[in-house]
Computed example of a mutant assay.
Amino acid sequence: MSGDVTYTGSYEARRSARFTVRAAAKINLHLGVGAPREDGFHPLDTVYQAVSLYDDVAVHPADDWSVTTTVAEHLGEVELPGPGENIVDRVAELLCAHGCAPGCAPQARVEVSKTIPVAGGMAGGSADAAAALVALDRLWELETPDDRLLEIAALLGSDVPFSLLGGTARGLGRGEVVTPLTDTATWSWVVVPATGGLSTPAVYRHFDELRPDAPAEPPSAEPVLRALASGDPYALAAALHNDLQAAAIDLRPDLGDLIDLGESKGALRGLVSGSGPTVVFLCASAESAREVAAALAATHPHALLAHGPVAGAHLVEMD
C-alpha cells in the first residue's frame, strides 16, 4: 500500500497522542447452532456476556505500521499471528478503506496486551479487533459514527460487534446481529484456560459430523433470557446451553473431566465456552467462585475469577 492516513487534527496533536482501549472476553450463555446455510455459515441464536478478563490495545503515532503482542504468563505458550496477519492489521485496512483518502496506508505503533485465553472460545481476537477499532479511530481522529463502527466490526468477525457493545446481548444471524439485553444481576464465574487451543472451524466441522440431522433453525435462547430476567444463578445454571460442547469434548475428552471436577467442587454448572477449549463455571456467589477456584488450584493453577456483565470496548488511558 502507499499513501498516508488523512488526519484532521494538528500534526503536533496527533504526534503526541496515545490511546489505550480495553475490551472484554465473552462467554456464550446460550449457543444454539443450526445446520449450515448455503453460504457455509451456521445460523446462530446466542446470548453473549462480557466478563472481567481483558485485552488492552495501545496505539501510538508513528511514521509506519507495526503490531506487537505480549501474552500474560497464565496463557502459557501460544501461537501468535505472523507479521501482517493479526486481526488488528485487518482493522487498520478497513478503517482506512472506510474513513480515509483512497489508497491510504495505516500509520501507528500498536501494542496488544493479552490476558484473554488465545483460541479459547472467549473471543480474544474479537476483543482485540474491537479495541483497535476504537483506539485507531481516536488516534486518526476519524470520528466514525457508532453505527458505522458496528458495520465495520461485522466485516471483521461474528463476535466483534458484541465486543464493541459488551454487557449482555442476544446475537442472531452468524452472531453479528446483536441486541443488548437488560441484565441487572452480577454473575460470578471461574474461568479455566486449557493448554493448547481448539480450532473453531474444526469444532464446527465435528458438530456437523455429530449432528447431520441438525435443524435449519438453531435452538432458541428463550430459556436463558427468562433465567437472566429472574436474576437467579440457579435458574441460569439450569438454562446454560452450548450446542458445540459435545463436539469440543469429543475432540478434547479432558474438557468433560474438567467440567465434572468443577461441579464436584461446588460450581453450579460447568460449560465449554463457545468452541472451547476454555471451560467456565457459574457459581452461586463471588465467595463460592473463590472457593471453587481454590479447590481447582491443585490441578489447574491458573483458574481465574471473573464477573459479568461488564462494559464493551472503552478508553482506559489517553496521553
Rank of each mutant, 00 (worst) to 15 (best):
A97E: 14
A97W: 06
A97D: 09
H98G: 12
G99S: 11
G99T: 14
A101P: 06
A101Y: 12
A101S: 13
P102T: 13
G103H: 11
G103I: 12
G103S: 12
G103Y: 10
C104R: 00
P106W: 09
A108D: 12
S113G: 09
K114Q: 11
K114V: 03
I116V: 08
P117F: 00
A119E: 01
G120E: 03
D128G: 09
D128P: 05
D128W: 00
A132T: 02
V134F: 13
L136F: 02
E141M: 02
R148L: 13
L150D: 05
E151W: 00
I152K: 03
A153C: 09
A154K: 02
G157E: 07
D159A: 09
F162G: 06
L164Y: 14
G166D: 07
G166H: 05
G166P: 11
R174G: 07
R174I: 15
T179M: 12
P180R: 09
P180G: 13
P180V: 15
L181C: 11
D183N: 15
T184G: 01
W187P: 04
V190R: 11
V191F: 08
L198F: 09
L198V: 04
V203R: 00
Y204V: 10
F207S: 10
R211S: 15
R211M: 11
D213F: 04
